[in-house]
Design a protein around this nucleic acid. Structure first.
Lengths: 314, 314
DNA sequence: CGGCCGTTTGAGCCACATCAACCGGGGTGG
DNA sequence: CCACCCCGGTTGATGTGGCTCAAACGGCCG
């Protein structure tokens, strides 16, 4: 796979060619391998897009910098993952460009460590493709997953400010991460207040998610706890999903257990029970919500806390 | 007590007089009532200080504004609670003054609600005296405490940005809260980048604390979980405490239970067990750590995550 | 075909919950 | 000043959700 093949010194065309190879290879394959190849293809294409974007937008800045983000123009990434990342941060075109230009892209394979526990945290990382987790290993060998990151999430918006990484951040699947080294980040932060705001908001959002999980861990039974995270993931992956829609969630039951503070065995049983009640279904990375409303009610899940833009009712 | 007596339209001298009354009254009293009266006296004096500070520093700004915060000069609050709050935020004298001038002070009695769950969150609140908690009540009637706030903490640095209050914030004891309304805050944030930074850092710090608690809830046994929060509180209240020092921690066993996701009965038993091992002692609001190192090790507590200034080793 | 990883199933056990009663101090009301 | 009462803490008995250990299963890949 991508192992060992360097991405950073290749031209966009090469990357696209590699991606095409992956896609062709995928046709003849089946199951997990196929998914893997397609995922890699996506990452490669994304990387190519990124290169093109960085080069093409390096020059014509002052003239294309409309006050609000333009839907047309040189930016070909509006609907790509990078686009989603950026639109969530709600930055001006200028700020976007400054941010992305300072970034270095890197791919990680499953279980690769992006940032080790206890080390100095000298770069801001953002996840563009794949999935990642932040976890802590206790003395007994127990593992607790603290956060699961999906494309568009910042991995350490708070830690980069405090300067230390309190958890290990590692990839759940092949992932693409944009990293901004500390010194470049520093200058971005001093000159671009809206980037500070955006990172502050990311920090607050991450904290919101952790808070909900905390409440679940403290006071909900296993079933509601599990149901809640499934709601959360479904919503984060696809806000407007209808009953019966499926989303890809690259987690095993063991990882769910480490996330929920349960044993894998129990996760399995609870999952079966939820399936039996025809509320949700989750197996080998495929999540289907059958009765969204019932599930939300059962899990006491209110997507409010995941909203990035504030709705302005009452 | 303070119930019903308006604080906001009194002169500093009056407030000081009231505080003196409280202290005198306290002498003849005993136990809890005494503590209560002393606490109120402190709050009143604090309030008086605040008034004086605001008036006296309203004018001579540009001349007294040294680049870094001056140890001398007009500021009489360096060692008061307000001083600690400010020094933690590490703002310049100008920013400090702008922040405090925009604030309105208010006192709350035990169980008074500062900010209700689900409501719009239209002010930034900072705790100057007393203690407070953020909690969520579930449908079953179960309560989970999400955060405990001590003097100097911001109560909702993240929520004020996201615009909604996801938890109920209420006072644990008579407390004094500085509040900055949203519109004043907005203008502070646009004109004073270091205030944004400070609030971002507060958000990150709060998230750190929640993360540690999350790890405990997920994967630690009741005993280590309890030991950990006791370490946390002792450290937050008095970083440099020696073995055997006592600190005041205004929590009941029931509240500890709601914080740790345990039953009150079990908290009691675990507390006894820890006391039996001569590690910690906690009763009626008085916390004593007997063997700091042993306790830290047992709880896997590393104060790193509470550090506000980054140590620059390695 | 064989091995591996993720899932499934079953049996027994333990940490912690629940229920219920009692204690003890200190503040309040008679 | 005494009696009561309320609240926070303490104790015991009993129940159970979720854990552990152990083994089998099934798809996927080599």
């Amino acid at each position: 796979m991508l192992h060992g093949l360097s991405i950073n010194n290749r031209k966009p065309e090469e990357l696209r060619a590699l991606a095409r190879d992956r896609r062709e290879l995928a046709i003849s394959k089946t199951g997990r391998l196929k998914a893997l190849l397609l995922n890699e293809a996506k990452l490669l294409e994304f990387h190519a897009d990124l290169r093109i974007w960085m080069v093409s937008s390096a020059r014509p800045l002052s003239e294309s910098a409309l006050p609000s983000r333009p839907e047309t123009g040189l930016v070909p990434l509006r609907h790509s993952t990078l686009g989603r990342l950026m639109s969530r941060m709600a930055l001006s075109a200028e700020d976007e460009q400054a941010l992305i230009s300072a970034a270095r892209a890197r791919t990680f394979e499953r279980d690769d460590v992006v940032l080790a526990e206890g080390g100095r945290c000298d770069a801001l990382h953002m996840l563009c493709g794949g999935a990642a987790r932040a976890s802590r290993t206790l003395e007994g060998g127990n593992l607790q997953i603290v956060s699961v990151f999906l494309p568009g999430d910042a991995l350490n918006p708070g830690d980069v400010l405090l300067g230390r990484s309190p958890t290990t951040i590692s990839a759940l699947t092949s992932s693409l991460v944009l990293s901004i080294p500390a010194d470049e980040l520093r200058s971005l932060l001093t000159h671009r207040p809206s980037i500070v705001r955006a990172l502050w908001r990311e920090t607050a959002l991450l904290a919101s998610i952790q808070r909900e999980r905390l409440i679940g861990l403290g006071r909900k039974a296993a079933e509601a706890r599990l149901a809640h995270v499934l709601c959360e993931f479904a919503y984060r992956l696809q806000k407007d999903a209808r009953d019966g829609d499926a989303v890809e969630l690259p987690l095993t039951q063991v990882e769910l257990a480490d996330l929920l503070g349960l044993s894998p065995v129990h996760v399995n049983r609870v999952l079966q029970h939820l399936r039996g009640r025809r509320l949700v279904e989750f197996s080998r990375g495929r999540l289907v919500i059958w009765k969204k409303n019932d599930l939300y009610a059962f899990a006491e899940f209110d997507p409010q806390y995941l909203q990035t833009e504030l709705a302005d009712d009452s």
